[in-house]
Simulated scan of single mutants.
Amino acid sequence: MKSQRRFGKVLKALAPACLLSMAGVCAAQPWPAKPVTIVVPFPAGGTTDVLARAVATKLSPVIGQSVIVDNRPGAGSTLGAALVAKAAPDGHTLLMGAVHHTIATSVYKKLPYDFQKDFAPITTVAIVPNVLVVSSAKPYKAVADLVADAKTKPEKLSYGSNGSGTAQHLIGTQFQMASGTALLHVPYKGSAPLATDLLGGQVDMSFDTITPVLPFIRDGKLKPLAVTTAKRSSVLPDVPTMQEAGISSLAIGTWFGLLAPAATPATVTARLNAEIVRIINTPEFRKQMMDIGAEPVGNSQADMVRQIREETEKFAGLVKAGKVTVE
């Protein structure tokens, strides 16, 4: 009995130390300890969603955990970003961010996060050209035809975007400034509902990324008039650039990349960068991107930080010139 009581006292004395030791083991638990979620701030079907799912499919077997895509659309991509900014910084919640977020910084008067301070960039996955498309039922054969018609109908022709403050919104604004036209802006929550209305004639045109509209272009349901990047797209080689079509001051593409909450351990973001860049550089993934009109990137974390800083500054000037604001 005495030995049992003595043993019990020893266990009681050791208990706190054991608990501390277990806590240390838990704290040092290697990443990932559970499924990883990639938040997409747009509905399913758009370019952001397509790229996120492509990465998720390849990343899951590499890290030995499920990678879940969670669509959280709204407020021009800022609702999903706000969710990730407030998430636990443990590498289990990521954001598929895009150029839209560098624009939103200047467009929205109040945001619940600072895109440059509250996120840790991982890598840019791809850059996708935007393309001016109209329904094939429209009579326009070139950008000049559309511009000429728009000038006779101020604010009668409409263009859809993925939301106020997105790249499509800003490209539409720049297009009007450069062409001397006045168009009606119709914001949507994403590419899928926009494409539906574009095909149905409820909206006259869009400046969406190539990926969601490419199947309709190939089917002959949508007509591409010009791409918005400085060079032609490899999947639409016969479609001129805006500069070639006479809109010389317009050259914008849309980038998409992964970010984590700012306080995520550097070891985790570094591993994510290494694994995802390796995936991006595989022939299979690169072909998958090229097939949907995307140009794969896979840059360093430092390069993505620099890219975000420079584009935030650039778009601040464009937003000011176009007087684009969102409450």
Results as ranks from 00 to 15, higher is better:
M1T: 06
R6N: 07
K9F: 10
A15T: 06
S21Y: 07
A28F: 09
A28L: 14
W31E: 10
W31M: 10
P32C: 13
V39L: 14
P41Q: 09
F42G: 09
G45Q: 11
V50P: 00
A54H: 07
V55Q: 06
A56I: 00
P61H: 00
P61C: 00
I68D: 10
D70M: 12
R72C: 05
G74E: 05
A85Y: 01
A87T: 02
H92Q: 06
H92Y: 01
H92T: 11
V99C: 04
I103K: 03
A104L: 03
V107K: 04
K109G: 13
Y113T: 00
F115N: 10
F115A: 08
D118P: 12
D118E: 09
I127T: 14
P129T: 05
N130A: 10
V131T: 10
V134C: 13
A137W: 09
V143T: 11
V143K: 06
V147E: 09
V147Q: 07
K151T: 00
T152F: 04
K153C: 05
P154F: 02
E155W: 01
E155L: 10
Y159D: 07
T166K: 15
A167H: 04
Q168H: 13
L170T: 09
S179L: 05
S179F: 05
L183E: 06
D197S: 13
D197E: 12
L199T: 00
M205L: 15
S206D: 15
S206H: 05
S206K: 03
F207V: 05
T211N: 14
F216H: 06
I217F: 11
L225Y: 06
T228V: 02
P237C: 01
L250K: 01
A251I: 09
A251D: 09
I252F: 07
I252W: 03
G253W: 02
G253H: 01
T254C: 13
F256H: 15
L258Q: 03
L259Q: 08
P261A: 12
T264A: 01
T264K: 03
T269G: 03
R271V: 00
V277E: 09
I279E: 02
I279K: 04
N281S: 02
E284Y: 04
F285R: 11
R286N: 10
Q288F: 12
E295S: 13
V297T: 10
M304W: 01
V305H: 15
R306G: 01
Q307A: 07
E310F: 03
V319I: 11
V324H: 04
V324D: 06
T325E: 12
V326W: 14
V326D: 08
